[in-house]
Each structure stands twice: as C-alpha cells, then as structure tokens.
C-alpha cells in the first residue's frame, strides 16, 4: 500500500475538472497505454488571456489521477507565463507530496501542461529532441538531463522514479549513469571555483542576480524581494508586495529564490526570510 497523503486520496476520489474542454485552445497529450499512464490536458483562455478552463483525461494509478486533477486546479486563473513556471515539484507539493516512486506522475502533469501551452501558442510540437536512451519507455537523453538537473537526482533509481527511464529491461542503466555523472561532474567543477569568491564578491553577485533575475520574475506576480543581509552563507531577505501576504511565499523562497542563488553563486547558500 502506498503512503498517499490525504490530499492525494481526496483528489483521486473526487477528481476536479474531468473531461475535455469544448473548443479547447490548447491540448497536450503525454504517455501511452504501454507505459501504464497517459494524460490528455485541454485548456481554454478568456479574453484577458487567463486560463479559464482546464480539463483532464487520465489513464493511470491513483497518484496520476490526483496529479492531473491538482494540475487543473493550479492552472485555472493563471496566465500562460505563470502556468509555464509550474514545475513537477510544485504539483507534488500541492498534493502534500508524492511517494518517491510516483514522482513521474507529477512530471507527466508538467509535460502535458507544456504541450498544451505549446499547442496554443502554435509552437511546433517539438519533434522528440535528443536520442532515445530508454527504449522501454521511450525516454530521451534530454528528458533525463532535465529531470536530473531540475530535481537534483543522484541515482538511476531516482531517474526511474521521475521519468521512468531504466524501469524496464535495464539495458540503459549505464547510459543513465553516464548522464548523471556528467551533470554531477559539471556541477562539481564550477562549484569549486565559486568557493573562491570573497565575501564582497559574493554579496555583489547575490545583489545582481536578485535585481536582474529574481525581482522581475516576482514582480510579474505582484511581488517583490529585498536583500537584508548576507552573513557567511546565510542570505536574509524580506518578501514584499504580494509575496509578503502570500501563503506560498515560503515555497517561492525555497524553490525559486534559493535554487537560483545556489545555482548561480554558491551551493552552500541558505536563504531565509526576516
């Protein structure tokens, strides 16, 4: 028996927005019968370009259905830009977490959403990019790389949990390991360089990234952020505007601000709110 959160169970038992939107503006389909799960997401926008309607059809386990249902709730009322920023981690968090082995359900949600948006924007559905690594589930090196980077995956098992690659015959395990090693290696190298930063350099870099990258992103949601202090690796910030009152600001802080700063400045950084 899986340890599903009450929220997963609730969404599974009472799924929201099942079906297909009439005259959909965008449709995204991922998965297949062979893979064991599949999701068809359709969306419709209103005159202000906000997602007015979102519906899903899902073949899959309880967590696949719950993830799809959660996704529709999350995107309704959002702009495409906002919707695009939803990560698989966000979907899992919305449900209070998913068992590790079921994270691929949240990835499926994210992928379907991306496809639906691309469909609306008239962007050519990208031909399968990259090379197929996992033949059993048709997963490419690019998809694996993305999952490894976005979720800091460290093992073949992790990769299987998130994108299914390696979950079948196992012939691709060496290739997956190579991808993980490459990414860990390339991250490890600059990290040692970053350690050489002086405190002053570090503060300047943080300031710069906050100004040029993080603030503009938060401003789109009516929020803002202010640097209060940098003490060693502890970065103290104040959330302003909409972020100050938003119940999800902690998530923004951890998932977005901290991730960006860690990635760009130093992996040791911890971001805290005043």
């Amino acid at each position: 028996m899986w340890e599903y959160t009450d929220k997963v169970k609730e969404h599974f038992l009472n799924p929201r927005n099942v079906g297909i939107v009439d005259d959909a503006d965008g449709v995204g389909e991922v998965g297949s019968l062979a893979c064991g799960d599949a999701l068809k997401l359709s969306i419709k926008l209103d005159e202000n370009k906000l997602i007015k309607e979102a519906k899903f059809q899902t073949f899959g386990c309880a967590s696949a259905i719950a993830s799809s249902s959660a996704l529709t709730e999350m995107v309704i009322g959002k702009t495409l830009e906002e919707a695009r920023r939803i990560t698989n981690e966000n979907i899992a968090e919305y449900l209070g977490g998913l068992p590790k082995e079921k994270m691929h359900c949240s990835v499926m949600g994210r992928d379907a959403l991306e496809k639906a948006i691309e469909c609306y924007l008239g962007e050519e559905a990208k031909a399968v990019e990259g090379e197929i690594v996992c033949e059993c589930f048709g997963v490419t090196d690019i998809q694996i790389e993305r999952a490894v980077r976005e979720n800091s995956l460290k093992s073949i098992e992790d990769v299987t949990d998130y994108v299914k690659a390696g979950g079948g015959c196992g012939n691709c395990h060496d290739k997956i390991q190579d991808i993980i090693d490459d990414i860990m290696g390339s991250e490890a190298a600059p990290r040692t360089k970053k350690k050489a930063l002086t405190n002053l350099q570090k503060i300047r870099m943080i300031e710069e990234i906050l100004e040029s990258e993080i603030k503009p992103a938060l401003e789109k949601d009516g929020g803002n952020i202010e640097l209060v202090d940098v003490a060693g690796n502890k970065v103290t910030v104040r959330m302003r505007g909409a972020c100050a009152t938003c119940s999800r600001s902690q998530m923004t802080l951890n998932n977005y601000v901290e991730t960006v700063l860690k990635d760009r400045v130093s992996h040791e950084l911890v971001v805290e709110e005043v």
């Binding site: 893979c35 064991g36 799960d37 899959g60 386990c61 082995e101 079921k102 299914k164 979950g167 079948g168």
Partner: peptide, 11 residues
C-alpha cells in the same frame, strides 16, 4: 498485476 501497485513500472 499492474505495475503501479508493486512500485515497478512494468506489469
């Protein structure tokens, strides 16, 4: 006999 119940991905 489904995959999802066992934690593996294949039936």
């Amino acid at each position: 006999g489904s995959a999802c119940t066992s934690g593996s991905l294949e039936p």
